[in-house]
Amino acid sequence: MSAIDDTAPGRRHGWLSPSLLIGAGLSVLIVLAALVSYAWTPYPPTQMAILQRLQGPSAAHWFGTDQFGRDVFSMIMVGARNSLAVGLGAVGIGMVLGTALGLVAALRRDGLLDNLIMRTADFTHAFPAVLTAIMMTAIAGPGMLNAVVAIGVLNLPYFARLARGAALQVWAQDFIQAARANGLSNRQITIAHVLPNIAGILVVQATIQFALAVLAEAGLSYLGLGTQPPNPSWGRMLNEAQTFMATQPWLAIFPGAAIALAVLGLNLLGDGLRDAIDPRLRRSR
């Protein structure tokens, strides 16, 4: 999707585009919810009160209570931690390993290693991502950590391909020749020159992959394969809410809205950052 041109309309505002502003605002909101939840939530998020089960939104429980009488608002706040942790972990794995592989592939351009890495990346693409993640969690057992690894591994090819492509462009530039003339080794050049030059584009991609990771975790948790109770997770809250849809619809509305806002914020932030960091990227394909 990063290959798609997303020129926001009417962009003549310099680097502080509306995308960036709204995206940053939403992202900060989610991060704040997660941070504040460590110090304060209206109720302890895992505290059950069976006799207060399935209450509608009220002054006491802003988003109502679930089937165990837990406070939904508190659970959504703590759920933000979970989504952010999964996003960070998965993108971390994908970005670090993927970039490393991409840089190596660029160094060994058209060599055996390059072919091996890139063919494997293509190959992983053939499997529907959700199916791969389902199978991985089926083997390793469901749980947040395994979800992070599964989503992280699926992120790898994106970063590998991006890093390889961008690195090849850098390698083709004149100042690399100069560096080589100065006697720097390939590894030194990669670290001193190539990496800093592709960092921006990687960060942009990371933001977008972060949003996809949040979405993927929500999907896995919805299927019961992600984060496990008692840790609140937005996706699993939706799964449990489905049973109560006819009588307690609010249970299905708030967690979904949280996912949508988080993903929207991160996507907008990614778009905004891309334009801010490197306006040329806008038209690049």
Binding site: T46, Q47, M48, I50, Q67, F68, G224, P229
Partner: peptide
């Protein structure tokens, strides 16, 4: 997987 087990499990854990 049955929902009685999953639900009872959460309460028992608490």
């Amino acid at each position: 997987p049955p929902s009685y087990a999953r639900r009872a499990g959460e309460i028992v854990a608490a």
